[in-house]
Design a binder for these strands. Structure first.
Length: 608
RNA sequence: GGCCCCGUGGUGCAGCCAGGUUAGCACAUCGGCCUUUCAAGCCGGUAACACGGGUUCGAAUCCCGUCGGGGCUGCCA
């Protein structure tokens, strides 16, 4: 089997660094396996997915050197396939239409109020009238509880499900995916053998239908709370985790046995079981093997049926994803950790469509200092910002690849080919990683040192322009020379103009505001030294770095001065500051004419 | 709240599955050397197995519990 992986971003005009890392891991995996790396543009949000946004996306991938193997697939063009798959599920009984104004009342009505004792029916009526007051009671209770929580654990208020009226055009129905019934086989659901009981509120009937079940867990409703004041949420669960389900009443009396009602349920009956105290069932576990995290599983009684097609007729992300992954013959899905929980139902969806799901691996998230997922508030989260900062794509690639993966030894700088050779998902770890800009900068300086000056020159041009430095037609050798000298002194291309601008300017502004500069200028021997050097340098024929170095050293020795007393005044004259590459190299590159001009000018300023 | 995932210095990784060094490497930080400045380079220092039990001659490693962080819990993607 040939490995086929994909990177499936939605184009928003910016590429998040976490997405880029996912792309890198996919690419490395594909290249290591000799497989294909594909692109799928999830452009179903037409408002944001402009052509410009798509261009930015592709450009970012090219920038870090990720190439893809086939024409990108545009999700927006595949609406027909998505809907066809949904239709197929509906026909096969694995999806059902449900009108949008779903509420407990509606469901009760659909099934009739038969089985609900008169007392409960009257109570429903009362509740219906008091809906508003209940709603605010719920809200109040929530706000109160929320205020007591530590800030980090606070949640946004959500309407209680009991009164939840999902948005959507009234009159239209959303298509729901139905998880397997307990009597249906599934490769991703297994009998755990463990018997569980789950308390339910006896004041409320449990509803069982082919769509799943609805109940209020007793744990949510405190003992003795008047029902009309109770803060509870209706659970809408699929049946899939409830093997051998029995609904128990007072004294463990069996009120309902799912096995016996199978046929009625399949025929579409909605059963209301009043007076229930507990659900007893054998637990089924939803499970899949994650290539990064190992065997993963969760109790399937927590699984819910999910919306596949919205009431406006558009497929949800998950459906589109699964259908596209199948049609693109994707074999491995490598994506962010935030999709782990979705995977349980994605594999079930594949299965329901009669397809074999791909293998999944989930990458740990990149987090900020607070351990939260990197967001735009943290700054520098988009690929473009790194480019703008003068980070080399090789460095970013290297850094990102090592965030959550390692070649297994202590190497930090690993080139692309080596990574391709060594990459395995097995070596991806599952702990979230913090983004460390300082380490990126360090890696960047390493790559800066080894890139040919001619390439660097090309890359640094925009930064020079940004700094207002214009190069003459014949300045290319000068630029490359300056890069050779400065490359190991800077960490990013962005720093180059400030460090080497003096090579390209006509004159130079002495930075007297700097203490160290003043100290050099005010040194008593400075004027004399500069006068001597003016003479010596003007008579010098061989203006090479080596010779300059030798001449200056000889002069310092003769005068009994430290080399610093000679080089620093020159440096100030020529660069305006006290920092530059070795003085010989600097003067040689700058050239005799400019050097003398600048020394002359400084002497004038010093009144000589 | 429920379920799932994760916990090695300030940070990233190695070590964990197959228990046995002084817990290794790198970034950052501090100090020193080199030195004409700035870098680079070299040498050295500070600093970690979240906590508590258990198993064992021996636990970062296996088991249980606790705590902490994150994810999911939408007709968002």
């Amino acid at each position: 089997m040939t490995v086929r992986v994909r990177f499936a971003p939605s184009p928003t005009g910016k590429v998040h660094i976490g997405n880029l890392r996912a792309a890198i891991f996919n690419w490395l995996f594909a290249r290591h396996e000799g497989g294909a790396f594909l692109l799928r543009v999830e452009d179903t949000d037409r408002a944001r997915s402009t052509e410009e946004a798509i261009r930015v996306l592709l450009e970012a991938l090219r920038w870090v050197g990720l190439d893809w193997d086939e024409e990108p697939v545009y999700q927006s063009k595949r609406l027909g396939e998505h809907l066809a798959a949904a239709k197929r599920l509906e026909k096969g009984g694995r999806a059902f239409l449900q009108p949008p104004r779903v509420s407990f009342w509606a469901l009760l009505e659909a099934g009739g109020l038969e089985g609900v004792p008169g007392e409960a029916a009257a109570f429903l009526e009362r509740l219906r009238r008091e809906e508003e007051s209940l709603r605010s009671a719920h809200r109040e209770a929530f706000e109160e509880a929320n205020a007591r929580r530590p800030k980090k654990k606070q949640r946004a208020y959500m309407e209680p499900l009991l009164f939840h009226i999902p948005p959507g055009d009234s009159g239209k129905a959303a298509l729901h995916f139905r998880l397997p019934h307990p009597w249906e086989e599934s490769a991703f659901l297994r009998d755990s053998g463990e018997v569980r009981t789950l308390g339910v509120d006896p004041r409320w009937p449990v509803l069982v239908s082919a769509r799943g079940m609805e109940f209020i867990p007793a744990a949510r409703v405190k003992e003795g709370t008047p029902l009309e004041r109770a803060v509870f949420e209706l659970e809408q669960r699929s049946l899939c985790g409830f093997l051998g389900l029995e609904i128990l009443g007072e004294g463990e009396r069996v009120l309902f046995d799912l096995e016996k009602e199978k046929e009625g349920i399949e025929a579409g009956r909605v059963l209301a079981v009043p007076g229930a105290r507990a659900l007893r069932f054998r637990r089924r576990i939803a499970a899949y093997h994650d290539l990064v995290k190992g065997d993963l599983g969760k109790p399937a009684e927590g699984l819910k049926n999910r919306v596949l097609v919205r009431s406006d007729g558009t497929p949800v992300f998950h459906l589109a994803n699964v259908v596209d992954d199948h049609d693109m013959e994707i074999t491995h899905i490598v994506r962010g950790d935030d999709h782990v929980e979705n995977t349980y139902w994605h594999v079930l969806l594949f299965e329901a469509l009669g397809w074999k799901p791909p293998l999944y691996g989930h990458l740990p998230m990149i987090v900020n200092d607070q351990g939260r997922p990197l967001s735009k508030r943290d700054g520098d989260v988009y690929v473009g910002e790194y480019k703008k900062k003068g980070i080399l794509p090789e460095a970013l690639f290297n850094y990102l690849a090592l965030l959550g993966w390692s070649p297994g030894d202590d190497r930090e700088k690993v080139d692309r080919e080596e990574m391709v050779r060594l990459f395995t998902l097995e070596r991806v770890i599952s702990t979230p990683a913090r983004f460390d800009m300082k380490k990126l900068l360090w890696l960047n300086s390493l790559y800066l040192r080894e890139k040919p000056a001619s390439e660097l020159a090309e890359l640094v041009l925009p930064f020079l322009e940004e700094a207002g430095i214009r190069l003459g037609a014949g300045d290319r050798p000068l630029l490359e020379g300056a890069l050779e000298l400065e490359r190991e002194r800077i960490q990013t291309l962005e720093e180059f103009p400030a460090a080497a601008g003096f090579f390209f300017s006509d004159g130079v502004e002495i930075r007297r505001e700097e203490k160290k500069v003043r100290k050099v200028l005010e040194a008593p021997e400075t004027p004399g030294v500069l006068e001597d050097l003016r003479k010596i340098l003007s008579e010098l024929q061989d203006f090479s770095a080596a010779n300059l170095e030798a001449v200056l050293r000889k002069y310092a020795e003769e005068k009994g001065l430290g080399m610093g007393k000679v080089s620093q005044p020159l440096r100030v004259a020529v660069t305006g500051g006290v920092v530059s590459p070795p003085i010989g190299e600097t003067l040689a590159l700058l050239g005799k004419e400019k050097t003398l001009e600048r020394v002359e000018k400084l002497l004038e300023e010093l009144g000589r």
